[in-house]
Amino acid sequence: MNTGTQSGEALPARAGLGLKPEHIDEIIATEPDVGFFEVHAENYMGDGGAPHRALTAITSRYPLSLHGVGLSIGAERPLDKAHLARLKALVERYRPQSFSEHLAWSTHESGFLNDLLPLPYTKATLERVSAHVDAVQQTVGARMLLENPSTYILFEDSVIDEIDFLEAIAENTGCGLLLDVNNVMVSAVNHRLDAFAYIDRFPVERVGEIHLAGYDETVDGAGDRLLIDAHNSTVADDVFALYRHTLGRTGPVPTLIEWDNDVPAFPVLLAEATHANQMLDAAPHWRDVRVARRA
């Protein structure tokens, strides 16, 4: 499936890295073997200056994944038209090979909260998110990938299973899915679910990209394990194991190592990418599109 946006190309099915300002000089000087770079769209929405110079240099050498963190697609309030216009301009300027956003919301009547907040899975929220994804794709002029969330709470109102919810949005809008394997592990532990069973039911034919990241661990008020989607460390062994299991169903898929906090020296990120590439090399070259999830 072509998951490209406007360039007509897709990301390569290799490991990619999040682009961090402190690494840019080293990347441009050494041109390391990285499948693609991913940036948070909002960091490149200034008018000009060094960020755009850096992104121009990177996109002349590497495929780009544009990953939004501010659209608030799950919000009750309407989408921010000014923000959509900025996103459209960025897509037109850099022609990323992939564009993705989150199943989450971030806005309050008094402003932007800068966190990816959860929503209940109901008929009403399904219709709202589908309408927002439609509007995003039409305005930006690109197909998007929607990412599964990591969550710490549940809602009494939720009546739709998360995978069914994501698949219905994809079905309604034609969007693809971004499967964050770390988020699957975090949510599964936090809600006493089986992460491997979640992967086994996921509609892998719709997956255009995978995310991997490190998590933090704490306990909740009752002493139950609580994983935090922290993006501040190496990918945990159990997440790499879940990733290997995922690749057994998806085949090779573009895979991002996310490390956004306490960012290490660039070679540490490269080592994580190498680890992921070894698993990608060993993955079967087909996708398991059995509809086992419907059983």
């Binding site: 919000a75 966190d115 709470i153 936090n190 809600h191 704490t218 909740d220 139950d224």
Partner: peptide, 30 residues
């Protein structure tokens, strides 16, 4: 969502209604 966000911004407010956990109860630490 506004009530949820207001509770995020004001730690003196209780966990909003409708929030639960796998144990079937709201958990302030979560």
């Amino acid at each position: 969502q506004n009530a949820f966000a207001s509770a995020l911004l004001d730690p003196t407010l209780p966990v909003p209604g409708g929030v639960t956990s796998a144990r079937g109860e709201a958990d302030a630490a979560r």
